[in-house]
């Protein structure tokens, strides 16, 4: 393909991406240096790094960052372990595989706001789970910070375990047949096969799922909005949700932009090794 033809094909997409992602990000950088309220929308006041100081000295920002990191640290490993466990179980059976996979996708395809609402009703008054918890464990579901945080975590696992399961299950189907056969002839147990053949083979998928699920955990917003009922008393804010609140509820657009730039820088720092890895992979493919 000639260079000009290539640009012919790629340009529409590039225009959209540059125009609607790169430029907004640069705009965000500029807006973050201004004080913007609903009154001075057309003539924002330049205040330099004041917004960044505001963000970094805001205890609620640090609280939200702390919860976000706890959330990632808890959900990512559990999700991967559960996903792998269910993938291995699914790999053991033949009948009804399609049915199990299709059913497990239910929480994954639900609109996040809807899925969380559904999930919340189970624990609400009149919900079956709050009833069971009360009857069997004498535990009354109260919507306080700790309980809501736990619910946000459980909900996240409910939604995204199927994704990990399906990716790992697909990976298990590509294991080298000859090596498994050889191992079986040598009398290696199932556990040994798992440890010495399957897990090394799936390694790149583990990295892939860990990366995706870290990113997904980072951007969780809808479930926080629904499960906290937008109640300011419940401190289960993630960074995303706090940026959203700062912009939409408090209408501090300058500060929200500064927060978003800090987020972007943080994500890029984490991401750089993966980007370099991908870059090398792609160069080698040619």
């Amino acid at each position: 393909m000639k260079r000009n033809t290539f640009f012919g094909f790629v340009t529409p997409s590039l225009i959209v991406m540059v125009g609607l992602m790169v430029l907004p990000l640069l705009a965000s950088l500029v807006l973050g240096l201004h004080r913007i309220t609903i009154r001075n929308l057309r003539a924002p006041a330049w205040i330099g790094l004041q917004n960044y100081e505001d963000v970094l000295s805001d205890p609620r920002f640090w609280d939200s960052l702390e919860f976000t990191l706890i959330f990632i640290a808890v959900t990512v490993p559990i999700r991967m372990l559960l996903g792998l466990a269910f993938a291995l179980l699914l790999d053991q059976i033949v009948k009804w595989r399609g049915f199990f996979i299709a059913g497990s996708l239910m929480p994954f395809v639900l609109t996040p706001v809807v899925g969380t609402l559904i999930f919340r009703d189970l624990f609400d008054i009149g919900g079956p789970l709050s009833y069971v918890l009360n009857e069997l464990f004498n535990f009354r579901m109260i919507w306080n910070t700790v309980n809501v945080r736990v619910l946000i975590i459980i909900h996240s696992l409910w939604v995204s375990t199927p994704f990990a399961m399906i990716v790992f299950f697909a990976g298990l189907q590509t294991l080298p047949k000859e090596r498994l056969e050889a191992a079986r002839v040598d009398g290696a147990s199932w556990l040994k096969q798992l440890r010495h053949i399957a897990i090394p083979h799936l390694y790149s998928l583990f990295v892939f799922v860990a990366l995706i699920s870290t990113m997904d955990s980072y951007r969780v917003l809808d479930s926080v909005l629904v499960l906290t009922r937008q109640n300011p008393q419940i401190d289960a804010r993630t960074v995303m949700y706090y940026s959203f609140l700062t912009a939409v509820e408090f209408r501090r657009w300058g500060k929200a932009n500064a927060m978003s730039i800090i987020t972007v820088v943080g994500i890029f720092i984490v991401l750089i090794p993966f980007l370099i890895m991908t870059y090398r992979d792609q160069l080698q493919e040619d």
């Binding site: 790169v22 907004p24 965000s28 980072y218 657009w253 929200a256 932009n257 978003s260 980007l275 991908t278």
Partner: peptide, 23 residues
């Protein structure tokens, strides 16, 4: 282009939408 696209995929959409609200 591909690597940059991947980098942008990792960012939460709120980073693009705030300036868009403004613009």
């Amino acid at each position: 282009i591909l690597v940059l696209a991947l980098a942008f995929r990792a960012l939460p959409s709120i980073s693009f939408v705030l300036p868009f609200f403004y613009l």
